[in-house]
């Protein structure tokens, strides 16, 4: 890693980031904002955790996540059904927000990471790497999958008093999905990714 001038994102202080060792992080001396974290083989780890998360998400979507029964009437619910089921048009805003924050945004975030990792692994940068990397950075704060799982637990406890309810396989897959998604967040470092992008595009230009 080369030294590079950088301004703190939160307080605008200019500084030089020294070469970091494994597991070291660079903090702003004035406000304490973590500018970057460095992990050995972070790129590979990022790719692996994103792939794992995608696989778990696929499993989580294909099984029922809650089994609910009342007076012998049984009902199972998959994750996608929990979004569609809001029938009333007025509440389309809520189901849209739920769909976006709990599935669509995490999913596109992971797909974008896959694409970027692939683009960095190939000799030449793949087309649209720049806007996709930008999109990934912008999508990150809108991931709310971990809140969704807490909500499932809360509604589980709420319903428990009035009916028999148990978790399906999808719940556990979704839990695993959240864990690998969190791992992806740890290895997703925009400073490292953009530096890598700059180095790659410079190489490409020199080669051309």
């Amino acid at each position: 890693m080369k030294k590079r001038h950088i301004a703190c994102h939160d307080c605008d202080l200019l500084m030089l980031i020294p070469p970091l060792k494994h597991r070291e992080k660079a903090k702003c001396p004035r406000c304490g904002y973590v500018l970057t974290r460095f992990y050995r083989h972070a790129q590979t780890k990022l790719l692996v955790s994103a792939l794992t998360a995608l696989i778990f998400l696929a499993f989580a979507l294909s099984f029922p996540f809650i089994i609910f029964s009342l007076h012998g009437d049984e009902k199972t619910l998959t994750l996608l059904e929990s979004i569609q089921n809001i029938e009333n048009i007025t509440y389309i805003l809520i189901s849209a927000l739920l769909a976006f924050t709990a599935f669509i945004i995490p999913l596109s975030f992971l797909l974008c990471i896959l694409y970027i990792s692939l683009s960095f692994k190939t000799k030449k940068l793949l087309p649209f790497t720049n806007p996709i990397l930008k999109l990934t950075v912008l999508l990150k704060p809108w991931n709310m999958a971990e809140i969704f799982i807490i909500s499932i637990l809360v509604s589980f406890i709420k319903v428990q008093t009035m009916a028999y309810i148990e978790f399906g396989y999808a719940f556990f897959f979704y839990l695993l999905f959240i864990m690998s998604l969190s791992a992806t967040f740890i290895y997703f470092d925009r400073y490292q990714l953009w530096s890598l992008y700059q180095r790659k595009s410079k190489q490409n230009k020199e080669a051309a």
């Binding site: 619910l77 089921n85 809001i86 509440y91 809520i94 709990a102 809360v154 509604s155 319903v159």
Partner: peptide, 12 residues
């Protein structure tokens, strides 16, 4: 909000 939408879908 998540809890409400899960309950709406579930308890019907």
């Amino acid at each position: 909000i998540y809890v409400v939408s899960i309950l709406v879908a579930l308890v019907n």
